[in-house]
Design a binder for these strands. Structure first.
Lengths: 354, 354
DNA sequence: TTGTATGCGTTATCAG
DNA sequence: CTGATAACGCATACAA
């Protein structure tokens, strides 16, 4: 038989109320307070009202940390983005938070800057938070990341892209196809020389996918694929330089149309064309990607593709919610949500016959 | 004397490794594993190496939830933003995450859409996460929110603005002053009729602060303050309509210069001026706010103010880190970091004499 | 340098 | 409808 251990110094932080404080004030046990928050209907109306008043008065808020530990299911969803400084990021995040908030789920964000390694690090960090679900924004991960994902045993959504044969939910659109779409748009108008301009030393692998779709379409049509990579970081400047170079080239060598990997490059081109003595779209037809707010205001207005950014974020979150609400389905078939990426035809892409 | 209670069903989730699994595999006690993560130097090199191998092999990641609960200090910093869809949001968030990440702190974000009530809700939610610090992006809160903030007893940073006599750390710049700065810019050129155009039914209270600074300057100069509010949501459209109205007004009634509350409105105006038969800046000088990437490319290039967005996010995070690193200072004087908001003078604001 | 005992604030289980 | 008890996974205090 052991002696009673000596009392130890307590580490209670006096500054915060606990469920026990509320229980004591109400003259009930703490589990009743727990139920008041999680299953109010299982608490009598009288007690409920008393608790409501006390909680209100002392400003008690249940600890997500303790609750998450005890229940084994925290209220956290994690998302790894690729470019936290882009408009795409903002719209996706808004879509996700708007949708998750109502369910009391907290979104944790990380930035991978288009890097597989940074994505792996982010996932590793997130694992420590025991999230209920994970939202990723690419479909090619490091082997280590793939291993963690399958070991996690939680819903995983790959948003923004849309590919086949993945073990995870897909919410987005096929990027290569959008490149093909723009190529077709020009081929249908009779173009034979169409160029694709990628941003500087490509971090953005989606842009590269669009370029591939373009190239495949050109090749299939028996035409030459002409993919160029910008030599400056700034997208506007890159577009402007493309125009300068175009004006300097002999007319016969010029492409009849240029597809820019994003609207910023195209805008830079349009705003600089006049300085180069080029008249758009006569001297060269243009298209972009992303439907930036400014694009419709440019002269000529920019033809572009409009991805459903907000809706993709929203749908990714909905997919998560659906999976969490569903009964314990062991390995459900991954959901596939194909969201629109609409071709917006404006003046800039009108090809001059001949 | 009571009977031994019957054994209860365990709720262990088999799917995740714990610190005990690692300890068992290494033949040490679990506290040693805990130390390996938190104070590696207190563990012998031999054990350290063994643990490193095991952790790597089974892919163990410490639970932030359990750790946070046990230590009473989770690795969380919370931030309430005002407009999650804006470029400002993206830059601020990037500055904060870049800075916090190295310290292993996780940033939790919420969106308040310029609403005090939504901010209060967000703070209430965050309280449940027991964050180490809180970053806000306004300085006027509801009484309830103020009450929670003082009860929290953690560092609170108010970022983006910069006001006096607040109990919390300030990181940003005084917005009213920037409005005054633009007003002066035109007054110094001899302007007497300067207009300020606010975006539609103002959610953005910062824009209103800039307008106040403008108005005060005009009044002080003995001139009339002329603040107009856009009648459409879309900023580009609002700017365009401003030009249309300007062209329709008799020349003598026209302002000599217009300050737009943001660059998007100014861009809309510049892109539409030609359609109205207006020549800028001769017919009217223009200025904006925010230094959008496109602004320098416009014809004429747009005069604007360039707030140090990324640096404000970074400095807000640094302030948090500094406070957390500092010893238990009970109520330190709030820090005050005044970050630059630079006037970028370009062609659009050149006033035509006479 | 390592281990033991205890508690963080909440919820799951089982009993009334 | 309510309550007693034992986890949840880890870190702190203290002892060896």
């Amino acid at each position: 038989m052991k002696d009673a251990p000596p009392p130890r110094a307590s580490r209670r932080k006096a500054s915060t109320h606990t469920i026990h404080d509320v229980a004591a004030l109400a003259g009930v046990s703490s589990i009743t307070v727990s139920r008041y928050f999680n299953n109010p209907e299982k608490v009598s109306v009288a007690v409920r009202e008393r608790l409501r008043e006390i909680v209100e008065r002392i400003g008690y808020v249940p600890s997500q940390v303790a609750g998450g530990l005890a229940s084994g299911r925290g209220r956290v969803v994690c998302a790894v983005m690729q470019n936290i400084a882009s408009a795409t990021f903002a719209d996706l995040v808004k879509g996700m938070t708007d949708e998750l908030q109502a369910s009391g789920l907290q979104l944790l964000l990380a930035n991978a800057q288009y890097s597989q390694t940074l994505e792996e690090n982010a996932i590793r960090t997130f694992v420590g938070w025991h999230p209920r679900a994970l939202i990723l924004t690419r479909d090619d991960h490091t082997p280590a990341a793939e291993a963690m994902l399958s070991a996690l045993d939680i819903p995983v959504v790959e948003a923004w892209g849309f590919v086949d044969d993945r073990p995870f939910h897909q919410v987005g659109f096929p990027h290569a196809e959008t490149g093909a779409q723009l190529a077709h748009h020009f081929l249908e108008q009779g173009a034979t020389r169409v160029r694709f301009v990628l941003p500087h030393i490509g971090e953005d692998f989606r842009a590269a996918q669009r370029a591939q779709g373009y190239a495949a379409t050109m090749t299939a049509a028996g035409l030459a694929a002409d993919v160029q990579v910008a030599d400056v970081e700034d997208d506007f400047e890159a577009g402007a330089r493309t125009m300068t170079a175009l004006a300097a080239a002999p007319r016969a060598d010029r492409p009849q149309a240029i597809i820019f990997a994003n609207d910023n490059m195209a805008a830079g081109a349009i705003l600089h064309a006049d300085d180069c003595g080029l008249v758009l779209p006569c001297d060269c037809a243009l298209a972009g990607f992303g439907d930036a707010p400014i694009s419709v205001r440019l002269k000529p207005a920019l033809t572009t593709l409009r991805p459903a950014r907000y809706q993709i974020g929203q749908m990714a979150a909905r997919t998560v919610l659906r999976m969490l609400a569903a009964p314990q389905d062991p390995t459900p078939a991954p959901g596939r949500a194909l969201l629109p990426c609409e071709l917006i035809v404006r003046e800039s892409s009108r090809l001059t016959p001949g």
